[in-house]
């Protein structure tokens, strides 16, 4: 019954807004997440594969409203965002920027140490670093545009992230990959929560006949794209023997706890 109603809900949502096609991971977050862990699908790292990935994720389920349809529902007057909504958006952008800063620094610190011992990992490390650098500049621009205060812990995260990256790289390739696995698992969950919140907000505004606005629509698409890329890094890490790190359970749970703490702090300060 519950499953049926949730399926109906997603069907209704899908017909309302093109962006709802990625509600699926929100309805079934645990299942999809576990699948990612369990399925050892060898997704080869190649440019062709990347293109296919981007294609499927960017394709909306339903085309946007046709012109006459849009004309019959004139755009209603916009209301200001509520304090709760603005607070959420501000803290979300702030914590995302801090997270991407940390990710960039972790990869930057890991790369030289890992690459000396395992030259075949150079393209993978470069690919992951480049994506993180792209995310970082995306959030930098968004923060500046929407006048959000960056986190006050900026220098602390810089030192902590570099130390984490360097420390795990010294422990070996497996530990470095376990670090990536732990960080990207937390970040993926975190981005998923954000997407869910944003979609709830979109649904509420849709219901009360408000326009979501281009910035928020774009934000949803951006966060979703970045989440997919982060989870792709998680797959790469698992493919590269992350789970063979020696105290794997200890190492990942320590790093994940650290990530959660850092997210908690960055949302506030």
């Amino acid at each position: 019954m519950a499953l049926c109603s949730s399926a109906r809900r997603s069907a209704i949502l899908a017909t309302h807004l093109p962006t709802y096609d990625f509600l699926l991971p929100c309805l079934l977050p645990r299942i999809t997440h576990q699948n990612r862990h369990l399925s050892r699908s060898r997704r080869l790292y190649s440019a062709e594969n990347d293109g296919a990935f981007a294609n499927t994720s960017a394709k909306p389920l339903r085309a946007p409203k046709s012109a006459p349809e849009a004309a019959s529902n004139p755009v209603p007057r916009n209301k200001p965002l509520t304090q709760a909504q603005r607070d959420f958006l501000a803290s979300a952008l702030r914590v995302n920027q801090a997270g991407e800063l940390a990710a960039c620094l972790i990869y930057a610190a890991q790369t030289p140490v890992v690459v000396v011992a395992h030259p075949h990992l150079r393209p993978l490390m470069k690919h992951m670093y480049d994506q993180e650098a792209g995310h970082f500049s995306t959030f930098n621009k968004l923060i500046a545009k929407h006048r959000v205060r960056p986190t006050a812990m900026y220098p602390v995260w810089k030192v902590a992230a570099s130390a984490l990256g360097w420390g795990t790289a010294i422990m070996g390739r497996e530990a470095a990959m376990a670090c990536t696995e732990a960080v990207e698992t937390e970040i993926g969950t975190h981005y998923n929560d954000q997407v869910r919140w944003l979609l709830d907000m979109a649904e509420q505004m849709e219901r009360s006949g408000e326009e979501l606005g281009d910035d928020l629509k774009e934000l949803i698409i951006t966060v979703r794209r970045i989440r997919d890329e982060e989870l792709e890094h998680l797959d790469h890490a698992v493919e590269n023997d992350a789970q063979k790190a020696v105290p794997h359970e200890l190492l990942t749970s320590f790093i994940r706890a650290g990530c959660r703490g850092a997210i908690w702090v960055s949302e506030r300060v």
Binding site: R86, D87, R149, V269
Partner: peptide, 16 residues
């Protein structure tokens, strides 16, 4: 700390 923080500035929605 929130007292000094700026919240999200929207371009599509009127200011509060």
């Amino acid at each position: 700390a929130r007292l000094f923080s700026r919240t999200y500035h929207s371009y599509d929605h009127p200011p509060p």
